[in-house]
């Protein structure tokens, strides 16, 4: 084609500019604040002396406990989501007749698109000391007296597993859907049992979807604010609530900024570390599998 052509990213420039002004610049500003300090009761931040002191302050024992708590809820919640979603996604994509799959997907979508806060309030009602669950459990004789799970770490764990479960089911469904029945039948015809087919054909082929689901759940879960705020109380605090309270109630923007930066760093580092561990754990298996294929040839 001849004639004048605009430079390549031209059409993307408005979006790039918008994100630079309203995403990159504000985040850099928070990074800058995190090296400052709170000068007095009435001022929120000052930057005339720069130091790493706010980071040290953000890691003192009280706050550190909350970060540790967040990491615990993040890991336990992601693993629970994976364990709960796996059989459901497998069932939906393999066992259910094709014409019902769309309907079931839509049903998974409904809670996901219900307002996050509203579904969490639903759990607050269910978990209330004298609520539905308490009545049901005490009528079967599992508990005696009021249910005291609300405003604890367990309630937060239940809440985050609930809130992020659809984000695990959907990519797993897509992944299993891609592993065709022919693949599984071929594996069976070659003499593999059902367990061997699951672990040596289905799961390896679905691995990209499993990884996507884990990331989709883990990252927003670590930064969760609403679940911990509504179900957590003092015992189930998470880092997101801590950051917010520095900006809203304590009015210490420098410390809040340091915490926000730490939160992002913890999320990225832990995700990278988990990826590395999983990669190292899978490495020997992938070699042996290749060897088997080579021998089969």
């Amino acid at each position: 084609m001849s004639g004048f052509r605009l430079p390549r990213p031209t059409l993307a420039i408005p979006a790039i500019g918008w994100l630079l002004i309203f995403f990159v610049a504000p985040v850099l500003m928070v990074l800058w604040f995190s090296f400052g300090y709170k000068p007095g009761i009435f001022a929120s931040h000052a930057n005339d002396k720069l130091s790493f002191d706010r980071y040290a302050e953000a890691l003192n024992p009280t706050f550190f406990t909350t970060f540790w708590n967040t990491l615990w809820v993040g890991l336990a919640g992601t693993i629970l989501c994976l364990l709960i979603a796996f059989p459901v996604a497998y069932w939906m994509s393999v066992k259910v007749p094709v014409r019902f799959r769309g309907l079931l997907l839509a049903l998974v979508m409904v809670p996901y698109w219900t307002n996050f806060l509203v579904r969490t309030i639903g759990w607050q009602i269910i978990l209330a000391p004298h609520g539905w669950l308490a009545t049901a459990l005490s009528s079967v004789g599992i508990i005696h007296g009021p249910l005291d799970i609300l405003y604890t770490r367990s309630a937060v764990l239940l809440g985050v597993v609930y809130n992020y479960l659809p984000l695990m089911i959907l990519p797993l469904f897509v992944a299993f859907d891609r592993v065709s029945n022919e693949m599984r039948e071929a594996s069976k015809d070659l003499g593999a049992g059902r367990i061997a087919t699951l672990f040596r054909v289905t799961i390896p082929l679905a691995m990209p979807g499993i990884i996507v689901g884990t990331i989709l759940v883990y990252i927003p879960l670590m930064g969760d604010y609403i679940t911990a705020k509504v179900l957590g109380g003092a015992k189930g605090n998470m880092a997101g609530v801590l950051v917010a309270s520095q900006f809203q109630t304590a009015q210490n923007w420098a410390l809040g900024s340091a915490m926000a930066v730490l939160l992002i760093v913890v999320i990225l580092l832990s995700a990278a570390l988990a990826g590395l561990i999983i990669w190292l754990a899978i490495l020997p298996f992938s070699r042996s599998r290749k060897l088997v294929i080579g021998m089969a040839k």
């Binding site: 994100l19 309203f22 995403f23 610049a25 504000p26 985040v27 500003m29 928070v30 604040f33 990252i219 927003p220 670590m222 930064g223 969760d224 604010y225 997101g240 950051v243 917010a244 900006f247 923007w253 809040g256 900024s257 926000a260 939160l263 992002i264 999320i267």
Partner: peptide, 16 residues
């Protein structure tokens, strides 16, 4: 943009 926790977006956008 996609992975930054919403709470971090929130606390950075307010001063901005």
């Amino acid at each position: 943009v996609a992975i930054t926790p919403e709470i971090v977006d929130a606390v950075s956008l307010l001063p901005w």
